[in-house]
Amino acid sequence: MTTEEHTARAMVEAVGIGRDFTVAEGRFPRRVKRVVPAVRSIDLTVRPGEIVACLGPNGAGKSSTMKMLTGILSPTRGSLRVAGLEPSRRRTTLARRIGVVFGQRTGLWWDLPLRDSLELTRHLYRVPAAEHAHRYAELTELLELGPFLSTPVRQLSLGQRMRGDLTAALLHNPRLLVLDEPTIGLDVVSKATIRSFLARLNREEGTTILLTTHDLGDVERLCERVVVIDRGSVAFDGGLDGLRARDPGSDIETVVAGLYRDGAARP
């Protein structure tokens, strides 16, 4: 397979991407600037239909990587294509091909009923009315939104809001769904609902899913492939079986922690 064919078939193709930030240190007027690499060098290929989990300690570079993939940040170096586009250069077009949910931030309108928020989302993505009606009805049933569609977003529980955010991210039927900590802070029942929905979405619609998480339950129930990021670089990329094989007598949490160079932080 040629490089061009490989890239065309990949949903995400990142080669050596990195991101630096400039920080100021010291006291005025003698402050000096220092370049800090949040992401050093990431190689990552995600093919259509995969569910891939990105793990790593806080500050490892996971969220910065996700922001580069979605066009929020521009890579300082390396090459990157997502859904056939350069994210930072084609951000508006890319937004119509992918769905994004950040677990700690909502994309819904805080003071509007959930139903109205989802209707506004339709206009943002320019989804035709008939297509929206079908998709809206389907997602409302699958995620059991009916009882709280009339509730203002600010009054929703965390689990309800996450289901609303997932619906908003999927109304335009994206090819790729990027999730940053989708189950953070959720109770056991809400986690099970989200995981079951994501598994069905991937199985029945073939949606590619890329998620970061600190919850290894997400990984074991959803993913066959794991990418461990530590200090801005990939420490492991492979299947769950390969991860377990690194230390057959230990659970996955212990194995993942062993991949971190400092050996201290745990997912």
Rank of each mutant, 00 (worst) to 15 (best):
T3K: 10
H6R: 14
H6M: 10
A10T: 11
F21E: 08
T22G: 04
A24W: 06
P29D: 09
P29R: 12
V32Q: 13
K33I: 05
R34H: 12
V36R: 14
A38V: 08
V39A: 04
I42V: 15
D43N: 14
D43T: 13
D43R: 06
L44Q: 04
T45V: 15
E50K: 03
A53F: 07
C54M: 15
G56T: 10
A60Q: 10
G61C: 04
T65R: 02
T65K: 05
T65L: 15
L69T: 03
L73R: 03
T76P: 09
T76V: 06
V82D: 02
E86W: 05
E86F: 01
S88C: 11
S88P: 01
S88E: 11
R91Q: 14
T92K: 15
R96K: 15
I98F: 12
V100P: 10
Q104M: 13
L108E: 10
W109L: 15
L112W: 12
P113M: 07
L114W: 09
L114K: 12
E119P: 11
T121E: 05
H123W: 15
V127K: 00
A129D: 13
E131I: 08
A133Y: 11
Y136A: 05
A137Q: 13
L142K: 14
F148S: 09
S150K: 15
T151R: 15
T151D: 11
L156E: 03
L158Q: 06
R161P: 01
G164W: 02
L166I: 06
L166T: 05
L166R: 03
T167S: 01
L170W: 00
H172S: 03
P174K: 03
L176K: 02
L177Q: 05
L177G: 06
D180K: 05
E181N: 03
E181Y: 12
I184Y: 07
L186M: 09
D187G: 11
D187V: 01
V188Y: 06
V188W: 07
T193Y: 13
I194V: 15
L201T: 02
L201Q: 06
L201C: 08
N202T: 06
E205R: 15
E205F: 09
T208C: 07
R221M: 09
L222Q: 08
E224D: 15
R225H: 08
V226Y: 00
V227H: 03
V228L: 13
D230T: 13
D230Q: 04
G232E: 03
S233G: 14
V234C: 00
V234H: 00
A235H: 03
D237F: 00
D237R: 00
D241M: 02
L243E: 02
L243W: 03
A245R: 08
R246I: 09
R246A: 01
R246W: 10
R246E: 01
E253N: 07
T254P: 08
A264C: 08
A264T: 13
R266Q: 07
R266K: 09
